[in-house]
């Protein structure tokens, strides 16, 4: 007993020495990432000062007029700004919530499929919608959801329901936007979870089977807990995107009837004329989003630690 402990401590000591000796390797290993980030992200980041200027391309950052917080004051005093910020949050959170659930459920279910051809073909097919752009999909969905001649409403009609103007009613618009986004991305998103599932040690399942645990118990006690880190990482990092509700999608589907719930920050910025070259306002909006994203990530990190006991970094 005594000798075993002694041996252990000797081992640990030796190991510690080895590690300390070549710990400078670690700095070497992380150097490329730091240099590239410094150069290509931090150097241009000075452009953020545009948010506090009235930037003119021909004057440059050094020559443009300083306006302090004017761009932000404009954003927050704008009568519609709170509406579009809330709309953005609502859509993004709904997408995040239902998207994660759908992706996770799909990954768990496909993981249970035994037949190899089903598994492989389903995985390949659900991956496809990710590659279709919203410009194309927008056209398809407008057609499918047409209140009069659309396939969906014809189906509803055949089942005895009244026709629904999906893209013209504020609540249905939300449903449509969230639903189509989930449909488009769940297959692609599930790849991360599938990779995590592939990493679970099969010995765990074998042991559980010996203990007589059925499928549900195995899923509940082995599979899900193994996925928690991945879920936490993905959710936390996604929080940075919470003010991006998907411009391409909304822009191709929305219309004046659904401004009340469908108008988001990006469509608002688009209409206000960011395309018109108002770089400063665009930068200010970007900065606002980034700051909110940072706050949420830090918050999410703390929350994840408290609730799941997991530190993502």
């Amino acid at each position: 007993m005594q000798t075993v402990i002694q041996q252990e401590t000797i081992k640990k000591k030796r190991e510690r020495i080895v590690r300390r000796r070549d710990s400078w390797h670690l700095y070497l290993m992380i150097l490329p990432a730091i240099v590239l980030t410094l150069l290509f992200v931090y150097v241009p980041m000075g452009g953020i000062v545009m948010a506090f200027q009235e930037y003119k391309p021909y004057l440059g950052i050094t020559g443009s007029k300083w306006v302090g917080l004017d761009q932000f004051v404009f954003l927050f005093e704008y009568p519609d700004s709170s509406q579009v910020i809330w709309n953005t949050l609502r859509i993004a959170v709904l997408k995040l919530f239902f998207g994660t659930i759908a992706t996770l459920t799909f990954a768990l279910l496909i993981n249970e499929v035994r037949k190899k051809w089903v598994r492989n073909s389903v995985q390949t097919f659900v991956f496809l919608p990710h590659f279709l752009s919203w410009v194309v999909l927008g056209g398809i969905f407008i057609e499918l959801l047409d209140p009069k001649n659309g396939l969906v409403n014809q189906l509803l009609g055949a089942l005895g329901f009244e026709s629904i103007f999906f893209l013209g009613d504020n609540n249905w618009f939300l449903v449509t936007v969230v639903g189509t986004e989930v449909w488009k991305e769940f297959g692609y998103g599930s790849i991360i979870f599938l990779a995590a599932l592939a990493g679970i040690n099969p010995a765990l399942y074998e042991a559980a089977q010996l203990d007589g645990a059925n499928k549900w118990k195995q899923m509940w006690h082995i599979t899900l807990p193994s996925l928690v880190p991945t879920i936490v990482v993905c959710l936390t990092l996604s929080l940075s995107q919470v003010l991006n509700a998907g411009f391409d999608q909304i822009f191709n589907l929305y219309n004046p009837l659904v401004y009340a719930k469908g108008d988001i920050i990006d469509t608002f910025v688009y209409r206000i004329g960011l395309i018109g070259g108002n770089y400063s306002f665009g930068t200010a909006i970007g900065l606002f989003k980034s700051v909110v994203g940072l706050i949420l990530i830090v918050g999410g990190y703390r929350l994840a630690y408290k609730v799941a006991g997991y530190k993502i970094f």
Partner: peptide
């Protein structure tokens, strides 16, 4: 086991993930 300044470096990367200077400064660079 790790490196000194771990938290600073993580912060460095997180900030890099969230903030960017926009098209014009990057083009100039």
């Amino acid at each position: 086991d790790g490196i000194a300044g771990y938290k600073g470096i993580v912060g460095f990367f997180i900030v890099a993930m969230l903030f960017n200077g926009g098209m014009i400064p990057t083009y100039l660079l």
